[in-house]
Design a protein around this nucleic acid. Structure first.
Lengths: 241, 241
DNA sequence: CGCCCATGTTGATTTCGATCAAGAATCGGG
DNA sequence: CCCGATTCTTGATCGAAATCAACATGGGCG
C-alpha cells in the first residue's frame, strides 16, 4: 500500500523505525504525520512481573502497544476465584476503545516493554482515519476467535488436554519456529499458579500433568520454566484438538 | 444524529420501517440510500430449531440480522465433544466480516427470523461508510466482553453457579423487565442438552441443579421450558457473581 | 386412542480433579 | 555461601460432577 513510508524512512519518527508495532501492530494503519503526533505523546515503559497495566482500581486513561513480554488479562469473582481470560503478546494492542462496563485487569506476566500513549490522542485518530478502526476491528475479531477457542478448552477438555493446549499456545506465540518445525523451545511466561488460573485448574493438577508429559517424553523441563517440546505433533495429539 | 431519517420515514424502505435492527442493530449506521440498496438484496428467512445459519460444511456467503429467536454458536472437538461459545439474540448481527480460520457453527436454537443479505453488498458498504465499521467494532467488543465473562463461568464456577448464571443470562436477554424488576418470566430457548453444552456440564447435572433451584423456591418450572424467577436478586446471589 | 421417540428426571456408582499435607527445588539478598 | 521465602512437586484423601442405568413425561402421528 503505502510503500513510500518505508522507502523514505526519514518520514518515520526515529522511535518508531525499528518498532514491530509499525509492521504487524496497529501503528501500521497510521500516516507518517499521525505516527509523528503519536510518537510525541508516547513513552516507552518497562514493567516488572505483577505490575498492573489496566486495573479497576484506578482508571488508566491510556493505550499501549506491547513491544515485548506477555500480559495476562484476568477477571475475578467476589470471593477471590480468578480466571485468566486472555494472554497478549507483542505486538498486540492493549486497551479498550470506547467504554466497557466489564471489569478486567491487565497485568504483566513477565517483564513487559510497552509503548504507551494517552487515550485521547488515539480516540481522535480513530475518528479521522478509518484504517485504524479497521485494524482495531481485526485485532478484536482475532481476540474473539481466541476467546471462543479457549472456551472449548475450559468447558470440554480434560486436565491433561488443557495443559497440552496451553503449551501449544505458548509455543506458537513465543517460538515462531513451532509452526513449521517439529521442535520448539521456550521459557514459560507464567507461573504454575497463573497456568492454573488460565486453565481453570489447581496448581497441583497443572504440576501433575506437566510431570506426566515429562515422564512420557513429550516435553523436557529445566529450572521449572524452560521447556523443550521434542515433537509438536505429539503434543497436538494430546491437546484434544 | 440523523434525525431526518426518522422524521421522513418515506426515505426508509418499507421492509425496514418497523425493524429493530435499524434502531439497535447495525442498520442504524446506514444512510437511507444504503438501506435502500441493502433492502433490495435482503430476504427475510424463518428457520426452524436445529437449522444451520453458518456451517463449516457449505460456506454460506451471507450476513444476517437476527430479528427474532435465539442462535447458538458452537464449536466441536474431533471426537464429538461440543461447546456452545455464544448465544445471539435479536437484533444481533450474525456473520464474520473478513475471513477467519476458526471454524464455528451457527444454528437456530429456537425458531429464528432473520433478515439476510449477500456478503458482498455489506463488504462494499463497510468500505464506503466508516460508521458501519464502528458499529461492527462495538458489537464485536460486546461479544468479546461476553465471551470473557463466560470464560470465568466455565473455568471457575461450580455446577450450581453455572446454572444460575445461565438463567440470569437468559432472563436479562429475553425478559427486558428482569433488569429492574424483582421477577422475570421466560421460555428457555435451549434444551437441557444445549444448556449442558453451554455450561460445560452433562444434561444430568443441569437437570439436578434446576431441580435444586426449584425445590429451594428460587425458580418455578412449567412444562420443562417455562421458567419464573421469583426473586432475581436471590438468583444473582447463587450465580457466584 | 395408544404407541413411539425425543426429552427430561432421578438414583447408584465411579472417577477425575480438588483439597489437605508435607517435603523438595529454586531464587534473591545479606 | 547460606538462609528464608517462594514456587513447585508428590502423596493421601475427599468430594463434585461424570457415568451408567432406569424410569417418567409429553408431543406427534398413524
Amino acid at each position: 500500500m503505502n510503500l513510500r513510508q518505508d522507502i523514505h524512512n526519514s518520514d518515520t519518527p526515529v522511535v518508531c523505525q525499528a518498532c514491530e508495532a509499525r509492521h504487524r501492530g496497529v501503528c501500521g494503519a497510521l500516516e507518517p504525520h499521525q505516527l509523528l503526533t503519536l510518537s510525541k505523546h508516547s513513552t516507552k515503559l518497562t514493567l516488572e512481573p505483577g505490575m498492573e497495566l489496566i486495573g479497576d482500581s484506578e482508571k488508566v486513561d491510556s493505550y499501549s502497544n506491547i513491544l515485548a513480554g506477555v500480559v495476562k488479562l484476568t477477571k475475578m469473582l467476589s470471593d477471590g476465584r480468578q480466571q485468566i481470560v486472555g494472554l497478549q503478546f507483542a505486538p498486540d494492542f492493549l486497551g479498550r476503545p470506547f467504554r466497557s462496563e466489564s471489569s478486567i485487569n491487565a497485568e504483566a506476566a513477565t517483564e513487559v516493554l510497552t509503548c504507551t500513549f494517552p487515550k485521547g490522542v488515539i480516540d481522535r485518530m480513530i475518528r479521522e482515519s478509518p484504517g485504524l478502526e479497521h485494524k482495531l476491528l481485526q485485532q478484536t475479531l482475532k481476540e474473539l476467535d481466541e476467546a471462543r477457542e479457549w472456551m472449548v478448552t475450559l468447558g470440554r477438555k480434560t486436565a491433561s488436554e488443557k495443559v497440552a493446549s496451553f503449551l501449544l499456545l505458548i509455543a506458537r506465540n513465543i517460538d515462531p519456529a513451532a509452526a513449521d518445525h517439529k521442535q520448539a523451545t521456550f521459557d514459560l511466561p507464567l507461573t504454575r499458579a497463573d497456568i492454573a488460573d488460565f486453565l481453570g485448574l489447581t496448581i497441583e493438577t497443572v504440576s501433575r500433568q506437566l510431570t506426566k508429559l515429562r515422564i512420557d517424553g513429550v516435553i523436557q523441563i529445566e529450572n521449572n520454566r524452560h521447556v523443550t517440546v521434542k515433537d509438536i505433533n505429539r503434543l497436538e495429539r494430546r491437546s484434544g484438538i
